[in-house]
Simulated assay, not measured.
Amino acid sequence: MATRIVTLPGDGIGPEILEPTVDLLKRFVPDAEIEEHVFGGAAIDAHGIALTDDTLAACQSADAVLLAAVGGPKWDTTDPSKPRPEQGLLGLRKGLGLYANLRPVRPLPALYDASPLRREIIDGTDLLVVRELTGGIYFGEKTRTETTASDLCIYSVEEIERIARSAFQAARTKVTSVDKANVLESSRLWRQTVVEVHEREFPDIPLEHVLVDNAAMQLVSNPTSFDVIVTENMFGDILSDEAAMLTGSIGMLPSASLGNDSGPGLFEPVHGSAPDIAGQGIANPLAMFLSLALLLRHGLNLENEAGALESAVDKALDQGLRTRDLGGQASTAEATQAVLAALG
């Protein structure tokens, strides 16, 4: 049976970085059936909603989903009755049961000078942020009046247990659980549950607890102290974007969103749609390529192919490839050619 991949170009630079990525996908998986759907702002323009039932159904029946980027000022609104592109992302995560977002952060020596942090601080950093993706304040009940607004942050023991397991299973040296247990009741349940999973199922893996504000400071002052960071939805969103700057550009970071073994994963770069440079052919496609590598590894169990693509990106950078966000002048097409040449 052919491998079915749904692609979602989205908005802004999304179509520009997805096109060469699909070419790479065909190189690694020649028999792949690739089905493209509108999503995000583009779907709002076409259908009045960021995620249609047809698109969700196609994603649910796929082997993996490859998403480029969504959003832009065209669809920004504070009116709760109007659709937003980000609603499509939340709906897709919920509809596919994607509760674990994996964001690897590994600054490359070739890009150390692109980072705002000193070389000696980031040298040797190799961490993974494991973010809970379908609970917390993003999905809690929301209220809005003329004078007040509220967002409910709610977590169940089951939700915390499954994300904790994902973190411990990914750990090489230790797990750092990040919360705000000195203030928030939801964080106290988080900490208690993570401890119980640790003691019951993973007693041989060291576990530490760090408050989120301290974790934010440690990420930029001592990033090599982390192996796996596990945290709730909003904290994970913020910390993983902060960690992106260790690499020199958010344009370098991929992500994988995974659920249970029976459903497809969602693979996407961490960066946004960059509407200010859309259509100019200068977007950095490397995070998109690295997201494809995660799709090959976690979505299709093609470890060798994933490693080959990651090595090609590393080699191209070692040989001097620099897009504009990395201080160079390479276009999207030139970056693609550099990676293809490194693949051989």
Rank of each mutant, 00 (worst) to 15 (best):
V29A: 04
P9R: 02
P285V: 13
G307V: 08
S177A: 14
G263W: 00
Q280S: 12
T193R: 12
L152S: 03
A164M: 11
G88C: 14
S81W: 08
E86S: 13
D11Y: 14
A256W: 04
A274M: 05
H298P: 00
A68K: 07
K94E: 15
T77V: 10
T231M: 02
D53Q: 11
L67W: 06
L92Q: 07
A181V: 03
L207V: 00
D151P: 04
R172Y: 06
R165W: 12
R200W: 09
Q60C: 00
R27D: 10
T332A: 15
A46G: 12
A243V: 01
R4A: 01
G14Q: 08
T173P: 04
D213Q: 05
P264M: 08
E310H: 09
V130A: 11
Q319C: 13
M288R: 10
I13F: 09
F39Y: 11
A287E: 10
A62E: 02
L253N: 01
S115P: 12
A306N: 07
G272Y: 09
D76G: 13
G135W: 12
E232Y: 04
L219S: 03
L292F: 11
L211D: 01
G91C: 10
A171V: 02
L89I: 15
S225N: 13
G320F: 04
S331W: 10
P275T: 15
C153L: 03
S255H: 10
V197Q: 03
K180Q: 13
G265M: 07
D179C: 03
P9F: 06
Q192M: 14
S166D: 13
F235T: 12
T193M: 03
N214Q: 13
D31Y: 01
A308T: 07
S225F: 09
G41M: 11
S221Y: 13
N214I: 14
P9T: 02
V6C: 08
R188G: 00
V6R: 07
